[in-house]
Design a protein around this nucleic acid. Sequence first.
DNA 1: TATCGTACTACGACTGACATAGTATGTCAA
DNA 2: TTGACATACTATGTCAGTCGTAGTACGATA
Lengths: 124, 124
Amino acid sequence: MPENNTAISSDVIRGYNDTMILHILRQGPSYGYEISKRIRSITEDKYIIKETTLYSAFTRMEKNNYIRSYEDSGDTGGKKRTYYRITEEGQRYYNEKCAEWELTKDVVQRFIEGGEHGNDQKLS
Amino acid sequence: MPENNTAISSDVIRGYNDTMILHILRQGPSYGYEISKRIRSITEDKYIIKETTLYSAFTRMEKNNYIRSYEDSGDTGGKKRTYYRITEEGQRYYNEKCAEWELTKDVVQRFIEGGEHGNDQKLS
DNA sequence: TATCGTACTACGACTGACATAGTATGTCAA
DNA sequence: TTGACATACTATGTCAGTCGTAGTACGATA
């Protein structure tokens, strides 16, 4: 568990869980548990996606045709998993979210005091 | 109206509307309509807060003791307005949100392709 | 006299996140 | 062989923040 005093609230990440998942699926098909661990490792435990959030994101995104699922028991033999792969529509959506993120970063930053990593201004 | 193709979705800003409002109130007491216009101008119309969102934020934040309201008809004579001022607890909350934002920016950025304004970013 | 800008309030719907709980298999150690 | 633990999910219901829709009311301006 991350024992940050400043944890990331789910309201902030809200709407970006999908983007995170798609980012991972862009590197190849994967399944719930693996994606969950990948998010942990990418963020160095700073963000841990909840299981229910993850699986409900799958359902939603498959309905939106951003991802497609298939069954695979893997090489291990037993235990079947549901793998997901990103679709072209998912790819497009991902790209849009990336553009949106750049805009959002800019906008929110204007209301933030402290860091003063100005948006335009790339390093001194 | 901002005719951006990439508009900011409310899910992203969610949880930062309060921060924006507090940012403005840090500069002195204000009221709904004015704050709304300030947000528009600060963001250059890139983000326009909905009236209902704004007023429900007031209610919520006053309940949380982040802001305190008082009636004032202004210098114009008629038309009474409800002004809000930030409290010390609100100030503290604002500071926390700013810290959280820096963390969030870092985390989300790791899943974004394109801009490559990496934070630390080792780039290939 | 009507329209527009100002300054709100009320109410209900929607959505994403999440708590809680349960199922089921495989692995490993005591 | 038994139980704990990791894996890999599904089901169900709740909550909070946002937003659509609508309505009220005042003042200024044309």
